[in-house]
Amino acid sequence: MYQRQSGHHLCETHFIEDIQRRVANTIKTRRMIVPEDRVAVALSGGKDSTALLLLLWQLLPTGQDIRLIAITIDEGISGYRDDTIRSAEQLTSRLGIEHHCISFTDLFGDTLDTFLKGRETQACSICGILRKKALVIAAQRAGATKLATGHNLDDEAQSVLMNVFRGDLPRLCRNSGVDSSGKFIPRIKPLSLISEKEIAVYLMLQNEWNELPECPYTRYALRREIRALLSGFEYKHPGTMLHLIESKKKIERYCAGSVLPASLGSCTMCGDPCSGDLCQVCLLRQTFGH
C-alpha cells in the first residue's frame, strides 16, 4: 500500500502495524485510556466505528482491567440504519464484546425521520444534537468512564473548516482534550490522526470492509460540500488536513479563557451541563413543541 504522507510503500502486514502503532501512540500520549477504564465505543456499524472497535480490541492491554463495551444508537432512518446495526451486531458477537442498542423512539418518543419532516435541510444539526445526548445516556447506563468515537482525521479537519466558514469561534476554541472537569463522561477520538482512506484500506486488509449505504440525509449536509473541497485540497497539497488540526490547537491555546466561559453551567430544564440557560436538546424539544 502506498502511504501518501510518508511516501512509503508498505506491505499489508506493515500497513496494519503502522495504523496500530499510530493509534496506540495517540491513546498513550493523550492519556485517553487508563487502567480500570470502562470504554464505551460508539458503534454505528459504519467503517470508522468498526475500525475503532477492532483496533481497541486488538490494542488494549490485558491485565489492566480495562473493559470494552459497544453502544449503538438507532435514530430511526429508514432504508439505512438497519444494515449498519446488523453489521454492528455481527461484529460485537464475533469479538465477544458486550453490546447495547438504544433508539431515538425510546429516548425522545419518535424516529429521526418523523422529527425531520419539513426540516430535512437541518437533518445533520438535529441528528447530531440528539445522537450526542443518546450516546451520553447509553454510556451512563452502561457505566462507562470513557466514550470513544470513530472521528478520523478528515472528520476533524472538516469540523475546523466548517466552524471557520460559520464564524463559530466558541466551537473553534472548544478544547479537544480528554479533560471533562468531572461534568460528563470524557470523549476520546483515538482515530483522529488516521485518514478516512487509511481506515478504509485497514478494514479491507482485515476482511472487515462492508459496503454499506450512505445516510440519505447527507445530501443536505454542509459537511458533504466541505468534504469534497478539503479532499481536493489535500490531494493537491498533502498535509492540509493536519495543518488545519494544528491551527485549531493553536487557536485553542490563544483563546483559552477568553471566548468560552471558564466553567459550564447547568440546563434550567434538565440539569445537564451546558454553556447557556438551556442545553441544545431542550432547545430542540421547545422547537418541536415537546
Partner: peptide
C-alpha cells in the same frame, strides 16, 4: 472503484 461512503 469503491467509494468510501461517509456518515456514521
Amino acid at each position: 472503484i469503491i467509494r468510501i461512503a461517509h456518515g456514521g
